[in-house]
């Protein structure tokens, strides 16, 4: 029993740490620009594949490859905004469609290059082996990832509340017109926001995937729908909400998996049902403030 509880807690935290990192950027972009970026999951997936290929081409240069890949993804995020999102900002459906098209394009490109088979980027495991705690053993890479995720989330919170860019981001997200009147270049702030979100997705992927695996080019959609679910739960545009929502989702998943009868096959259904219930009872989510159009 104690093992089951430990198991639930650890995997809940692990799941939550990934979801929190991915949804944070996603939610930020939504909060600032009202933009649903469907390519967000594709950034995550693309990071994984670039790492895999980078590792095969430059076997010895681990850190350089990671940094290089993260920079590439951030730039792709910026280009997505400049080339695709910005011209269509006024139409909700247009942005959704075009970013969906981009995600689909990236997925298909990888499919053509490497097929549907899955691969592992094991060689990036920085902390092999396991650590035992209360009779429960944990993979060191996962422990590292959880800590790193917490650190990044805290740094990010600090950045949003203290830095100049962070303050303008908050200003734009609270009242865009007022922020523009105050002399903030809203488009530039939005550009940085999309780049930051891509950066966070790339960081999440490069820390998490070495301990997981690339499960095929379609994996981006799984993480995209999970982060949808998380930000609905937490409230769209709310940063606290997406972190808390991420962990709640993680715990619901691992709880279902371990304690409910036939749980493993329901593990990804129950969270969606929770979302539907939340949507119906409290449509703006746990921490959502603004009434959205």
């Amino acid at each position: 029993m104690i093992e089951d509880i430990m198991n639930m807690l650890f995997n809940g935290i692990l799941n939550g740490a990934v979801l929190a990192l991915i949804s944070l950027g996603y939610s930020l972009v939504y909060g600032v620009g009202g933009i649903m970026n469907m390519a967000h999951g594709a950034y995550f997936m693309l990071t994984g594949y670039l790492l895999l290929w980078g590792m095969r081409i430059f076997p010895g240069m681990l850190f350089l490859t990671v940094i290089f890949v993260i920079i590439i993804i951030t730039i792709i995020g910026g280009l997505t905004y400049i080339l695709l999102i910005k011209p269509l900002q006024d139409t909700h459906v247009g942005v959704v469609l075009i970013t969906f098209g981009l995600a689909f394009l990236i997925e298909q490109w990888i499919l053509i290059v490497s097929g549907t088979t899955s691969a592992s980027i094991n060689d990036y495991v920085l902390f092999p082996g396991t650590t035992e705690f209360l009779g429960y053993s944990m993979f060191n890479q996962y422990i590292f990832f959880i800590i790193a995720s917490l650190v990044i989330v805290s740094l990010f919170a600090l950045f949003i509340s203290k830095s100049k860019l962070g303050k303008s981001i908050r200003a734009v997200s609270q009242d865009r017109e007022a922020a523009v009147l105050m002399g903030i270049n809203a488009n530039r702030v939005l550009l940085y926001t999309v780049m930051i979100s891509a950066f966070l997705a790339a960081i999440a992927a490069s820390l998490y995937l070495p301990g997981a695996a690339l499960t095929g080019p379609g994996m981006g959609w799984t993480y995209l729908t999970s982060s949808f679910a998380v930000i609905i739960l937490g409230g769209m545009g709310s940063l606290v909400g997406s972190v808390v929502g991420g962990y709640i989702m993680g715990f619901v998943t691992s709880f279902t998996s371990i304690f409910l009868p036939n749980g493993p096959s329901w593990a990804h259904v129950v969270p969606l049902i929770v979302i539907l219930i939340v949507l119906i009872i409290r449509p703006r989510g746990l921490f959502g403030k603004k009434k959205l159009r």
């Binding site: 939504y30 649903m36 959704v96 729908t225 609905i232 769209m236 259904v269 979302i275 949507l279 119906i280």
Partner: peptide, 25 residues
């Protein structure tokens, strides 16, 4: 009926979640 309370992107995501639940079931 339940989706009436939702608007815009919330409705979009609500219907998406609904279809995923059905798919998985």
């Amino acid at each position: 009926i339940p989706c009436l309370r939702l608007r815009g992107p919330y409705l979009a995501l609500g219907t998406l979640a609904f279809s995923l639940v059905l798919l998985k079931l």
